[in-house]
Nucleic acid binder design. Structure first.
Lengths: 337, 337
DNA sequence: GATTGGCACTCGGGCAAGGGGAGTGCCAAT
DNA sequence: ATTGGCACTCCCCTTGCCCGAGTGCCAATC
């Protein structure tokens, strides 16, 4: 009961601080939330919450603001995922339905998510490792250059141009294409290495270098360090929170331009919505921000992540709802194709 | 002679203001630039320059800062294009040489340009309208869905998935592919409409709807309103100039997220380096910024633009040099392939 | 006639002092 | 355990002030 009220006070502080971005005082809580006790009682509770590390005081005669630990408790124990209005749901589905190809789906999603949450949105392309090969195409650009096109069942299309060690005739290319297609189609991209090495071994001595080059390129394109792509949107929203970030937003913007960083952020998503608050974030420059992320899937396997980066004092329930909804629609679209 | 000195004063003001970002006073000019006259003379010249609109005073007892008009005069009459050091040139060529495909070239270029100029960089994909068709591929995703892949000589690869009005067999797809390839390869993308309509007319009545759908999709993909793509990089650099933009940088960031806006910026590039200063910029939200842009080419025709957006008080000679250099290397890479 | 030194003037920014107010912690009473 | 009261702290806004940078103008000079 007593514990209950203290949590209610924490919730009140988080909610008020998120909406006003000003330290919350005991009096304000009594006024805005009907807790049925006086401000003095709230003060006692606040002293307790501060001792336990949930909230902090910017300076002596100010109200309290939640700490990262306080937000964590709020997310874990106090907030559900706010359901979206049906109008919002329809907006999402309408918006995503008009996409013409995978690039378009990604671009629209990131835009949509940025708009819904008014924060920076991240959307990862479906991982090739989790995809199977739908088609492989070899195009002869010139005597000794090929263009390799790999099409995955998730809709991803990867291309590489290859400098051949020796010229190939059109017939040789056609023959190689046929063999590649025969061994690769329907296979997992991650298995391509195993599937294709026999082709190199089986090649005639003269053609072997060329085949090896093509196979190497194919394997390189599906290597999981290279193949990840993440699109970013809504960076303008960062500017609105300028003063929320300890020093400046330059390091934040910089971090968000690094693919490596983004991959670390979205690297460990699962089907559940994950929240990383402030210092919980593995990336140093983003420890003033929070991440709300989840995975989307094709069939049963999670193929990539989607998420949002924003100030720690964000509307967690609302953001989690938006992220989850977009992920659901993405899964749906992927399954339809 | 007198005119010469006044221009020298303008140059001094621009240079000093760009490097210090503080209003420049008459005394500072005498100290930092050996003009051989006293500060009183400079003051007279400054009064003149102000009257003519080249410079302005933020408030009564402050130094002068250049107006957009002043920068314009500086760019047109006072500055050459600063040559790059050979180390810089080599860095550029090394950096771009490692690219594996067109996407990679674009990504590297934008990163490089942002780094060189410490500003926001824009790089446009080679326009399809200016390209010829290298290959067309049709992949049968399911009974009534096709994936269309268009490969242009500039290295661009476009994909569309197509919902067929009626199922097609594998043989029908193969036959259509052959016909498409025969009519389209080597043609200008912009001519595809004319080249392919005969195919629709020649199709059997049963297959006509499907053929029409494919051709329509192909034409849609090469329509010049859709096909343009621009990548953006270095937005973090904007944050460094936070205070340089009249109010905030939010509208600037927002504008830069709009493809339409970017297209307007890079739309009219030519082989020359173009500079748009402040209010000369057609996009309202960017009238506090300057644009330095140019085109790069394949063969003799300009295929797309590259440029930089930054504060009006930028280092124009240096920026122009970097933009031009990157464009040159892009042209070179495109010609090699 | 251009250039110069001198001088009064303006104005922004930095600094200190002061008051208002929000919010706290503690304590005694219930 | 809760509450009202009260003294206290500290931020922040406002005010007033001074200083210095920079100007414009003018009379003197070359």
């Amino acid at each position: 009961m007593l514990e209950d009220r203290r949590l209610a006070v924490l919730r009140a502080i988080v909610e008020d601080y998120v909406s006003t971005r000003e330290p919350v005082g005991s009096k304000a809580i009594v006024e805005r939330h009907a807790l049925g006790v006086s401000s003095a009682t709230i003060r006692n509770d606040m002293a307790f919450l501060e001792e336990e590390g949930y909230i902090a005081q910017p300076h002596t005669s100010a109200g309290r603001i939640p700490t990262d630990f306080g937000y964590r408790a709020f997310v874990d124990r106090l907030s559900g995922v706010k359901p979206l209005s049906s109008a919002e749901r329809r907006a999402i589905s309408d918006f995503l339905a008009g996409a013409v190809d995978l690039d378009d789906v990604m671009a629209r999603s990131v835009r949509l998510l940025a708009q819904l949450t008014r924060q920076v949105a991240l959307v990862q392309y479906p991982s090739l490792v989790q995809s199977t090969v739908l088609h492989i195409e070899l195009v002869r650009l010139s005597e000794s250059r090929l263009l390799l096109v790999l099409i995955a069942d998730t809709g991803r299309v990867e291309q590489r141009s290859i400098d051949l060690p020796a010229p190939m005739t059109e017939d040789e290319v056609t023959s190689l294409r046929t063999r590649l297609v025969a061994s690769a189609i329907g296979e997992r991209c991650s298995d391509l290495g195993d599937q294709l090495t026999p082709l190199v071994d089986a090649a005639t001595p003269e053609s072997r270098p060329a085949v090896a080059a093509v196979v190497a390129s194919l394997i390189e394109a599906t290597a999981d360090t290279v193949e990840q792509r993440i699109v970013l949107g809504g960076t303008a929203n960062l500017a609105r929170y300028r003063d929320s970030f300890s020093i400046s937003l330059e390091p934040v913007l910089e971090a968000l331009e690094e693919q490596v960083v983004l991959l670390r952020l979205l690297g460990e998503v699962s089907g559940e919505v994950t929240v990383r608050i402030g210092h919980e974030n593995p990336v140093e420059d983003l420890q003033g921000t929070s991440l709300v992320a989840t995975g989307y899937s094709r069939g049963d396997s999670v193929v990539a992540g989607v998420g949002v980066v924003g100030p720690t004092h964000m509307d967690y329930p609302g953001t989690m709802a938006s992220v989850r909804a977009v992920a659901q629609y993405l899964s749906q679209i992927l399954d339809e194709n």
